[in-house]
Design a binder for these strands. Structure first.
Lengths: 257, 257
DNA sequence: CAGACCGTCCAATATCGTTGGACGGTGGTG
DNA sequence: CACCACCGTCCAACGATATTGGACGGTCTG
């Protein structure tokens, strides 16, 4: 599962793993009672009870009349981590600008643990579909941001990521073989931008360009919207101009620290 | 310390508590090596090592050449929790509007665990000072958002919060006695808005109004900026009109689900 | 009023977290 | 070039503690 590059040698703290497993369960399921969690994870209710109480004591879950859910303490840490990110500060105004001039949704993504994290996004005036939330962690291969980033990764790194996370499908257009992914990444690298055409959500297209810091990718910026507004001509003539301009602005800022 | 309302009876998982203690250490200190963490928390390096490796395996910390720091997985959970918040969606556009018409920083805050969480903020054109990040968890008594929320809390709840978190000072204007806090909260309740005058940061003022859902506070919205732009007259005549209008818009939306 | 379900608590057992110390690698210094 | 200091990693033995089934009391439903 994750025995690829991360050395799995040595001892681990099982209760900590279990604790975060419960956190992830609450993430997926929302508010749960003690017995619902116990059933969900197939553990005794007494165990579920002790873990939930511990997490509640620590403030990481809050209990509303018997139901427990994740608290905003995760947002506290997450917001703080983002605040420390240099790229976030340098790219923010450009993402805003992109959303304004295109009227679509613009976003900033970075790689982490072989996935793509949404660090920031701005919704333009015509953005209607429900956007993913800040912090969204998802597979690289079905997003424009992810493909833009992967296209600048060394081949072994891509292989490793595919081994680790696989290539699940979301729509009939999702890239689902390693060979097809490498083809796509080569095309992406050659033309300088990534295009995602309903590979994750039906009816949605995205265009993204990678952001480099001294030869290595550190993230990407994108614009997404309904397919019918993302005609080839508009993308090539107008959208890409905005995207590359923003990319260049950010690159310059990076060079000047 | 926190033995007030939260029942501290029953068993807890100590390794989970220690794990989150390490998370909080990394939050405060930033990237740390194994031995730095060991010294910081006064634990053997072998113990620190196992915990960091466990957290790294789980993806909650990332190690850059021997230094470990919190990953964006916290932002993943935090962003997701926020996305589930109804108030966030109902209030967002109004916070944007407030920032636009005032040119200052506007924010949405909610109570959790006796503190105030920053759920959303927008920076107006003239916002210059470094804003707190999304998710910021801080004491209620030295923020306008917090005082607006507290002003609608029952007396016992306020006492309990003061017992739990105390009334630390940040500037010479910070409210530091329970009596003064109750006076301030009464004034706030009577005039319908909270005013924070350099009680947390020198040179910064904030004005906030509470948001009620069927008689009980669920949050507050605010506008903050440099003291010299927050003259009494402007606040009373113009700012408050915007704030109460936004508050009413949000209240109406809440009533219609 | 009975029955089902739930959260909480308890006590016994065995698991597993804890620790000092050993080892090998690295970087700095005389 | 050799020495030393420091650091991360691993190991094994001990003792702490996570785990579990079951008991208890409360609440809601029929």
């Amino acid at each position: 599962m994750s025995t690829s590059n991360q050395e799995r040698t040595g001892q681990r703290i099982k209760s900590l793993e279990r604790g975060f497993d419960i956190v992830e369960c609450l993430h997926e399921e929302g508010a749960l009672t003690v017995s619902e969690l116990a059933e969900e994870r197939d553990i005794p209710t007494s165990t579920a009870h002790i873990y939930l109480k511990t997490l509640a004591d620590l403030g990481y879950v809050v209990g509303e009349s018997g139901r427990y859910e994740l608290s905003f303490r995760f947002l506290e840490h997450g917001g703080h981590v983002r605040q420390r990110s240099e790229l976030y500060h340098l790219a923010r105004s450009e993402v805003d600008t992109l959303a304004e001039v295109t009227n679509e949704v613009s976003a900033l993504g970075v790689p982490e643990n072989g996935k793509r994290v949404l660090l920031y996004k701005t919704e333009g005036a015509e953005a209607v579909y429900d956007n993913p939330p800040i912090g969204e962690y998802t597979h690289m291969h079905w997003t424009a941001l992810g493909k833009a980033i992967l296209s600048e990764f060394p081949r072994e790194a891509v292989t490793e990521i595919v081994d680790r996370h696989g290539l699940p499908s979301r729509t009939h257009r999702t890239i689902d073989t390693e060979a097809a992914l490498f083809d796509e990444l080569e095309t992406t690298r050659e033309r300088g931008y990534a295009l995602e055409d309903e590979e994750r959500w039906d009816g949605i297209r995205s265009v993204a360009v990678p952001i480099l810091d001294e030869e290595s990718v550190i993230g990407a910026i994108s614009v997404s919207g309904p397919k019918h507004r993302f005609e080839h001509e508009w993308v090539e003539s107008e959208l890409l101009e905005h995207l590359t301009r923003s990319k260049n602005v950010i690159s310059v800022r990076l060079r000047h620290q």
